[in-house]
Design a protein around this nucleic acid. Structure first.
Lengths: 144, 144
DNA sequence: TTGTTTGCAAATTCTTTGCAACGCG
DNA sequence: CGCGTTGCAAAGAATTTGCAAACAA
């Protein structure tokens, strides 16, 4: 249930990218908060409160680099910022309450039948993890 | 396969809202382009080229009013602006190609099994139409 | 008249980009 | 040293908001 920042750093290196202090720092945050819904802003705040000086554009660029290296994926939970996580945790579909913002996840494989049907009828190869679906959580649905 | 602008206008009236020239104009565009993927910007452009002077903020506010009246729904096709359509056409799920932006739709009822499973396991009542799912269209998938 | 709407401009939110200075390899 | 990276500031895209003037009821 833990990942070492080094894995991320090494992957950057193997892509021919330079290992800088800021990239190390971003990798450290991702590793330490592994499993959480990380946003670019969260990372910036985390680092700044750790007295690391970093610009948000650098964070976005580092996140992009990690994503191109296949070490990170992001998804969009309704409105608001994109969330990043390790691909190993990505085999789930995000479900967000449009009323209160609560989130839940369901295993993506429960959608495999539907994905196959879409492929057959439209030719689209669906990646259900990139965007969340919205709905109402139990509490908000009850209020209606 | 046609809707009269009057239906929309009357619905606004029955909500206690005032019928103004601009609201009529927005309703007219929605009615005339019924079936298409309408964005706020499209409506503004349409009206302006029809020599109707209207501000985008007014369009957004009118769209909100129509949506609250239950006459319109919007969904998010990946990045980019929200698209609006009549609820009668809403019983479909949007599928967008993350590479080229091509869209397809699939009937929502093909997802009903999954929606039921999500309700049972998480308590969430999913509205699959509000956000599109992304993937690769046949052409872009073939390029990989 | 009076409370609702409108237009305009400015603010917001999230993300990207141009560019000169910086620092890894 | 040279080119990839960074910080900064500004640009962008989509949408929202504050406010005084305009207008429907």
């Amino acid at each position: 249930m833990h990942i070492s920042p080094d894995v991320l750093v090494e992957a950057l290196r193997s892509q021919g990218l330079r290992i800088t202090t800021t990239r190390r720092a971003v990798c450290a945050v991702i590793a330490s908060r592994h499993g959480q819904h990380l946003t670019a802003a969260t990372i910036v705040d985390d680092l700044r409160s750790d007295e690391v000086k970093i610009d948000q554009s650098t964070v976005y660029r580092t996140l992009d680099a990690l994503e191109e290296a296949g070490l990170l994926v992001h998804s969009h939970l309704g409105h608001g910022p994109a969330v990043y996580h390790l691909p190993s945790e990505a085999a789930h579909q995000h479900v967000v309450c449009s009323e209160c913002g609560a989130t839940a996840t369901v295993p993506t494989d429960s959608l495999s039948g539907w994905i196959g049907a879409v492929r057959d009828t439209t030719g689209f190869e669906i990646d259900p993890t990139h965007f969340a679906v919205t709905g109402l959580c139990r509490t908000c649905a009850a209020k209606r």
